[in-house]
Amino acid sequence: MDWSFITEYYPLYIESAVLTVTIGGLGIILSVIVGILCAIARYYRIPLLNGIAAAYTELSRNTPLIVQLFFLYFGLPKIGIVFSSETCGVVGLAFLGGGYMSESILSGLLSVRKTHLEAAASLGLNGFQTMTNVILPQAASVATPAVCANVIFLLKETSVFSAVSLADLMYTAKDLIGMYYSTTEALTMLVIAYLIIILPVSIVFTLLERRLHRAGI
């Protein structure tokens, strides 16, 4: 192990880690929003939107992220739509994640018992009041473990960003290997960088799930 290599090049990893976290974070936030919207469209079976959301969910979950990114980065410019690498990364991750989030959130919504819906209705709550006061709080605690698993999955999926010329962690490692053949050092730092990003997220989620579990909801 060449320690001088590590001390020399670790700033590159920090730079690309920031990019991974930024693009990944934005993509994940967007995917949660897309997921909530799709889940609500499917929960209420809103005509047209229900079908679109269901079809989108299947499409996004059953195609690889790299194909989705290629489509955004190399395909769309053919019909005159050009996105930057960064935009492709965020949109691609949100496209993939939205499908997974929608499934998880929908299962949370569907877990709310019919009696609770009827109790809310008979108390005079309207649809919106029922959604915000009765359905969402219960759905959130049911969906949280699955949503957390999705977040970690999506953070790991960012490793294909380099395919659309995003200088993320994977890109930096491949670059260094290509230039200096320091495979061991470059890959070790790559693994450590991913662990530093994802392990704390994973620990926080585990604590969160334990708390929800203890609340007995």
């Binding site: 009696t115 109790a119 809310a120 005079g124 709550l125 309207n126 909801i217």
Partner: peptide, 21 residues
Amino acid sequence: SLYKIRQKIGMVFQDYGLFPH
């Protein structure tokens, strides 16, 4: 109009229906 009317009708169910959260 149901939302208004239902405020004048109280209903209690077999399985309570208290909101668990």
